[in-house]
Design a protein around this nucleic acid. Sequence first.
DNA 1: GTCTATACACCGATAGAC
DNA 2: GTCTATCGGTGTATAGAC
Lengths: 206, 206
Amino acid sequence: MLEVPNRDRQAERREATRREIVDVAWEVAREKGLAQLTLREVADRVGMRAPSLYTHFSSKNAIYDAMFADAWSDYVTTVEQVARPEDATPREVLRLIANTFFDFAVADLARNQLMNQRTIPGFEPTPESYGPAVRALEMFHAEMVGLGIHGQEEVDLCVALIGGLADAQLANDPGGDRWGRLVDRAVDMVADHLELPPDSSQPPEE
Amino acid sequence: MLEVPNRDRQAERREATRREIVDVAWEVAREKGLAQLTLREVADRVGMRAPSLYTHFSSKNAIYDAMFADAWSDYVTTVEQVARPEDATPREVLRLIANTFFDFAVADLARNQLMNQRTIPGFEPTPESYGPAVRALEMFHAEMVGLGIHGQEEVDLCVALIGGLADAQLANDPGGDRWGRLVDRAVDMVADHLELPPDSSQPPEE
DNA sequence: GTCTATACACCGATAGAC
DNA sequence: GTCTATCGGTGTATAGAC
């Protein structure tokens, strides 16, 4: 009669501790850089000794792994919450997606390094943590199909283009908008290339 | 009478040792990964103890710095050696440049991480080492001007696009050509966008 | 000048006491 | 589950041999 709720409480507590560790890890990563994250620093802020973290995560990379899944889950949520007007033209939809991705990437350097670059030496996400990432890609693919774009190459081209803009922005002009200003233009470029219909509401100026 | 040649010899020897260290560092970086490079491993292969490297470089990052300058110098040389046919159309020139950059980037993961990504935690190239890199960018800019493209935005767009393709190739399909196949297509896309004249030699099929 | 030996502070990770 | 103690490894500072 008592055991089951006790076990629930324990599992709950355990999960809460894991969450706290991951949250603190994000905090440290944003402050000092993703690679400068150390177990001792995380443990200090959580109020533990460093080795105690191994009760909750099997290694430092396991923490990175949880952060990776975390980040992509957040992105999926972000995309799902973006209002998609019913009467949006294909180009507007593409612009919306591209800007959502770009803004999300540029908003957090450490997060983008973990999500989209191979910046941590030995780290490779586990299949489970990779789930939300492939989920996000599938959502984009489906959206492209909805626009009449069915090919893998077209998806790859878009991903590389917007990803390239985001990486260039973070690497060469962090906090600025030198590359951010190019997102809409880049979208129009691919839209033309994919022969999406032009926006008809307003004829393009000049 | 003796001092000057002696000093020359010494400087020569010193420079040779520096070169050897950098070469060995590249070797290690390619074998074990750029970030997994350790001073002890480099020193062992050169036939020194680790602290002795500090006679020639003030820190590990100073070695990365020399490697950075090295890589971009190599790229400049590579670009200069690419034959540019006199009768090449603007699109062909752009294709040539893009493929040269892409192939160079994809040929060596460690080198690309150092040149084009922020993969080493504390490392920032010194202004001197940055020289060849800005040299390469200026060359590209000049080439674009030669094609009638004068804007900064257009250059940025091209750089981000090809860079994005290269990074995606290395990150998601190393050794393959899933993104490499898209380079020519990407070039044509920007060429259309920049309203470069179509290749006239052969009318496009279909 | 060039290299070595030693040492230090820090890291991720493990073992075992409580 | 958390602790202390410790291990092997890292970059790097320094003192001194040659």
